[in-house]
Structure formats: structure tokens, C-alpha cells
Design a protein around this nucleic acid. Structure first.
Length: 218
DNA sequence: ACCCAGGGTCATA
DNA sequence: TATGACCATGGG
């Protein structure tokens, strides 16, 4: 058992299954992935509720709106002007590509490249969509993941997104897409659950000794 | 009052 | 390629 599997097992035994992504539809997953960029999930839920109450959780409905009409609804999720444009840019692309039915037949590498070509969709958002909306076996790297694995000295602090993603995917290659799904969700859960103390917490993802993992870092 | 959240783009060097 | 500025609300 390697470090990557070991951390997964500890997280899973600590928190159990997370059943991600929290949403009622695949389209809502994709919208949520954009809205949650550098934003607390609670605020994203408020924006999603606004969209739901206006019946706007479909490509067709969103395409009837302008950024100025959308922005007020996205207000609670922050960066509302930016996100209104990003959401519309994504939806226009999504619609042009034939939505889910057409996109699902593309190979993962091709679909990933297409997602990244949309303005406002970066590596993490693309991988959220690939893993949680299209059930592709890609590993999502977020700030928590980098923090935990660099502070445990499993990777260099300067390790970039793609490089770290390949570390996970190479190491966990025999595991399932369900495991990738669960793993990222558990990392986020751990971040929410433990890393609340300001300015720094005493768990493994920041410094000192983690009460959960019992591993000395830094 | 300060820090940060389930990031990404753009300008600058 | 690598930083820095910028986007902005709401909770701890």
C-alpha cells in the first residue's frame, strides 16, 4: 500500500462515503463546478437556489439571459459578474457541442481539451466536470490536495497541477472512477472539517502534527 | 478587523 | 515560467 492509498483509507475510515456531487442533475453539477471557483459551497448553494427558483438550470433557459440579468442571481456566490460571463460562455459551448448526449461519446482526453478551451474553465473545473458529470477517471486536484501532499513531503511544494494529477492517476491506476470520486470528496470534507482555525490550523494540511493522521510534517 | 473559501484570467518581467 | 492584481460574497 502506497501513500496515496494510505491517505485515502484513513480519510474513508474517518468520514465514510461522501456521495458526491451534491446536485439533482448532471447539468447542475457543471453549473456548480463553475460557481464554486474559490468560493465556499454554502454560498454556491444560495446562487443555485436562485437559479432553480427561476427555472434556469438548463442550457436552453440560461441562453435566454444576458450576463447583466444573470449576475444578480449569482451574487451570493461572489465574483458574480465574472461568473455570469463564465457560465454563459460554458453554456453556449455546451449547447453548440450538442449537450450531454453528444459530448459523452468523446474520449476523455478530447473532452478535457474542449472543456479547457472554454474561457473560465480551468484545470480543476474541467476535471470536476469530467469526474462528477461525465464519470471519467480523472483525479481532481484542489488547494487542499496540494497542501496535504506537499506538507506530508509526498510531493514538492512547487508541483504543478498537471504533474500532481498524473502522480495520483499513475499511482491509483488500478482503482475505479468511484474511488477517484470519493477520494477528492474526502479531501474536501477533511479540509472543511479540520482546517477552519485561523490563521492556521494545527492539522496536517498546514503544519505541526495532525490529530487525525498523527504524522509529523514541515 | 482579518482570513479565506471545492479558481481562473490577464498583464507584466 | 512565474508572480501579482483582480474578481466579491459570507462565515468563522
Amino acid at each position: 500500500m502506497n501513500h496515496y492509498e494510505s491517505i485515502y483509507n484513513r480519510l474513508f475510515s474517518e468520514y465514510g462515503p461522501q456521495s458526491w456531487w451534491p446536485a439533482d442533475s448532471t447539468f447542475e453539477i457543471m453549473v456548480g463546478a463553475i460557481l464554486t471557483q474559490n468560493t465556499a459551497w454554502l454560498n454556491v448553494e444560495r446562487a443555485l437556489d436562485n437559479l432553480k427558483s427561476e427555472q434556469l438550470l438548463s442550457a436552453e433557459a440560461l441562453l435566454q439571459k444576458t450576463p447583466d440579468q444573470l449576475a444578480p442571481l449569482l451574487k451570493p456566490s461572489g465574483y458574480f459578474n465574472v461568473k455570469a460571463q463564465r457560465l454563459l460562455a460554458f453554456v453556449q459551448w455546451y449547447s453548440e457541442e450538442g449537450e450531454y448526449a453528444t459530448l459523452k461519446s468523446l474520449k476523455t482526453v478530447v473532452l478535457r481539451k474542449k472543456l479547457l478551451s472554454v474561457k473560465g474553465i480551468g484545470p480543476e473545473t474541467a476535471d470536476d466536470i469530467l469526474l462528477y458529470a461525465f464519470n471519467r477517471k480523472v483525479f481532481v486536484i484542489d488547494a487542499y490536495t496540494k497542501r496535504i501532499f506537499s506538507r506530508l513531503d509526498y510531493v514538492e511544494k512547487t508541483t504543478g497541477y498537471e504533474e500532481l494529477r498524473e502522480c495520483f492517476e499513475r499511482t491509483l491506476t488500478l482503482h475505479s472512477v468511484e474511488m477517484f470520486n470519493e477520494y477528492h470528496a474526502l479531501i474536501v470534507k477533511h479540509g472543511k472539517d479540520v482546517c477552519k482555525t485561523r490563521p492556521v490550523c494545527s492539522c496536517c494540511c498546514l503544519n505541526a502534527i495532525c490529530p487525525k493522521f498523527g504524522v509529523k510534517v514541515d
